[in-house]
Amino acid sequence: MTTRPMGELATRSLVGTGLIVVAVLALWAGGWAFGLLVALAAVAMLVEWHGLTRRRGLHWLAIGIVYIASSAAALTWLRSLDDGAIVLWVFIVTWATDILAYFTGRSFGGPKLAPSISPGKTWSGLIGGVIGASIGGGLVVHLCGLATGLLLLAPLLAVAAQCGDLFESSLKRRAGVKDSGKLLPGHGGVLDRLDGLLPVALLTGLAYFSGWIAV
């Protein structure tokens, strides 16, 4: 796995922390503040998606609209179900997956997960992400009194988050670019930062909407 310069790691950490603070504050505020943040993020991701897929036909733009809009709608709907605990669970599962996968992969290395798509990702990183999501998600379930079915869902969604990351990496590889954009120093584009959140939000929304997980 490629080692990042310390300056880049510091920038990545600072920007990442700032994004988490903004997301949590908007989640706590709810209402128009949360809806506005989700809408802005969705528009930014769709612009970046179009930049990555514009040479592959309009059907790819349609796919992006459906994928991003449905994930954003699921996140907004989940926020309306309670005081924000469910969306907090979604955030924690996604963040824990990203963070633990990154540091576990750097620490242990080992066999590559999908070398032709994302050479830096390893099976050890995936396992670390699953463990992180299970622990982080479990803590939110316990502290917020959420449905116990989420304990089973967390490790599955950790895998989904990694698949979302790999899917976006495949789009970038086909487009011949390193990042989806340049809006977030140390991270690239908004889609680079939220590629794992999209499937987690969408699948969690489907789990609640179908009644598989009770409110």
Rank of each mutant, 00 (worst) to 15 (best):
A85R: 05
H50F: 04
W77C: 09
V15R: 08
I86F: 04
L37R: 11
G18W: 05
L52H: 12
G64K: 09
F34Y: 15
W28S: 08
G64C: 15
I86V: 07
L78I: 00
L19H: 03
V38C: 06
Y67I: 05
I63H: 12
L78C: 09
R79I: 00
S70N: 09
L81C: 00
E48L: 06
W60I: 01
A26Q: 07
A42L: 10
A42D: 00
A85E: 12
V90F: 01
G18L: 02
L25A: 14
S80D: 03
A26D: 03
A39V: 14
L46D: 03
V15K: 05
T76Q: 02
Y67V: 15
A39E: 09
V38D: 07
V47Q: 07
T17H: 00
V66W: 13
L36N: 05
A29D: 04
A29I: 12
A85G: 10
R79F: 03
V22H: 10
A72L: 06
G84M: 06
R55W: 04
G31H: 15
A73Y: 11
L52Y: 10
A41V: 15
I68D: 09
T53G: 00
G31N: 15
T17E: 00
R56H: 12
L37I: 11
V21L: 15
G57H: 13
G18N: 07
L25M: 07
D82M: 07
G84T: 04
T53M: 05
H59M: 10
W89S: 03
Y67Q: 14
V21P: 03
V90R: 01
H50E: 06
V38F: 05
D82G: 12
G35V: 09
L81A: 15
L27G: 09
L46F: 10
L88F: 13
V15S: 07
A29N: 06
T17S: 14
I63C: 06
R79S: 05
L19E: 03
V24E: 03
L27M: 05
G57K: 14
W60A: 13
A39I: 02
V21E: 05
S70L: 15
R79N: 12
S71G: 15
I65F: 13
A62D: 04
G35H: 05
I20H: 00
